[in-house]
């Protein structure tokens, strides 16, 4: 008993206000590293676009603008529901929060379904990551983003269950806020990917 409670107190004796601001700072720093991770791909995009403008022009038309646009709307909407969820838990409304997180999760899944059809159409036309530099970039950038969507969905699912269990209140909403920040990053990166890959001619 003695051991257990020492170990327990060891991890949890932070002042709640400090814990809140620490978690937020930690997540913002992490988001910075995520941007830098994608930064390598954005740099590669810039370099190869400058080198082969014709290739980018000819091949970007192969991408399905409509599906890309639908997915952009889905993700922006999901960011809205996530932000509303954070605001709801700050006012202590647990049920509303749970519903809003669930909608966010469904949007993320919807994004994945659309992306699945997009990828299969590409494979059907024998377009693969090694087809050209442009498609290498397309598959790697959207693929890495898709990986982040899955990570985001995992985080959201955990938050959903914990919200249902009543773990979060108006006084303690840190995980929802921090998870929300991550989801906004997933949305934000896509907002850059969509015009860079689908729209710019």
């Amino acid at each position: 008993m003695g051991d257990a409670s020492t170990e327990h107190s060891h991890g949890h004796h932070m002042d709640p206000a400090v814990e809140y601001s620490s978690s937020k700072l930690g997540m913002w720093l992490f988001l910075g590293t995520e941007i830098l991770l994608f930064g390598g791909l954005f740099a590669a995009y810039a370099i190869f676009r400058a080198k082969y403008p014709e290739m980018f022009f000819e091949q970007h038309v192969e991408l399905n603008k409509k599906m890309g646009a639908v997915n952009t709307c889905i993700l922006i909407f999901s960011s809205l529901t996530m932000a509303m969820g954070v605001s709801a838990i700050q006012r202590g409304k647990q049920k509303v929060t749970a519903i809003l997180i669930l909608i966010t999760i469904l949007c993320g899944l919807g994004f994945g379904v659309v992306k699945y059809f997009e990828y299969s159409a590409k494979f059907h036309h024998h377009i693969y990551p090694d087809t050209s530099i442009f498609f290498s970039l397309y598959f790697l950038m959207t693929g890495l983003h898709m990986l982040h969507v899955f990570i985001g969905l995992t985080i959201l699912s955990v938050l959903f269950v914990l919200t249902l269990k009543g773990k979060f209140t108006a006084k303690y909403s840190t995980p929802v806020e921090v998870g929300g920040l991550y989801w906004h990053l997933v949305d934000l990166i896509w907002i850059y990917l969509f015009p860079l890959l689908y729209l710019i001619g």
Binding site: G32, T33, L37, F38, G40, A44, P129, D130, I133, L140
Partner: peptide, 25 residues
């Protein structure tokens, strides 16, 4: 560590895709 490591991360990932997926950066 925070600013530089993600860049080598993506670089090594690109090298891995170069060998596995045939990416040609």
């Amino acid at each position: 560590q925070l600013l530089a490591t993600p860049v080598v991360g993506i670089t090594l990932l690109l090298l891995i895709t170069e060998r596995t997926l045939g990416v040609g950066f």
